[in-house]
């Protein structure tokens, strides 16, 4: 290891292998993703946390949701067949042939006035939304999302927390997103 490190450009797979301490560095240096760069798209995601082993792979999509407040847009998750990192992300389908979309969330730039304001350089993915019922454990999730490299809108880094009673937050996992396909 040298003192003067080369600026490394990680791709999606390599970033999925980074430990939390390095991901945290990237997260703090990240920038707020442009709304126009992610709405209408789905991203392949990978949870790096040990606690998230059961759901390593997932997909997240972003869409315009007129029902939400001004400045907000919508997002959802898609179930993905769990497999090794080097294998393709394959969406699980409903009987109707539609991808299994679930756990919808609201998306907006982090607001200093709210409890979830740890990273002002991020978007907040707030699962406390009209489309995710309160009985769904996913409604407790609060994810932050940043763009890793300013010139690469295809690679995003997320950090998931669970909202606990009393305004406390429990860190769950980092996740890495890579642009995959057009969404809804």
């Amino acid at each position: 290891m040298g003192n003067d490190k080369t600026e490394v450009r990680y791709d999606h797979k390599a970033m999925c292998l980074l430990p939390d301490r390095i991901l945290e560095d990237f997260f703090r240096r990240g920038t707020v993703p442009e709304r126009s760069a992610i709405v209408g798209w789905e991203f392949d995601g990978y949870n790096t946390g040990t606690l998230a082993f059961a759901i390593r792979k997932f997909r997240k999509g972003y869409y315009e949701e007129p029902a939400y407040d001004a400045g907000e847009f919508g997002g959802y998750n898609v179930n993905i067949r769990q497999s090794r990192l080097d294998q393709p992300w394959v969406a699980m389908m409903k009987k109707s042939g539609e991808p299994q979309r679930h756990s919808f969330f609201r998306v907006y730039p982090v607001r200093g006035s709210e409890t979830d304001n740890y990273y002002p350089n991020a978007l907040l993915l707030n699962y406390h939304s009209p489309k995710t019922p309160a009985w769904n454990p996913a409604s407790r999730l609060r994810d932050y999302l940043v763009q890793v490299y300013p010139d690469n809108p295809d690679l995003l880094l997320g950090k998931a927390y669970a909202a606990l009673p009393g305004g406390k937050r429990l860190f769950v996992s980092f996740f890495v997103l890579q642009r995959a396909c057009k969404g809804i």
């Binding site: 080369t6 090794r84 990192l85």
Partner: peptide
């Protein structure tokens, strides 16, 4: 320039496997 501890190496391999 890899900055990887023994423990992180094991975790990395676990993710890959």
């Amino acid at each position: 320039d890899t900055d990887m501890t023994n423990l992180e190496y094991m975790e990395t391999m676990a993710r890959l496997l």
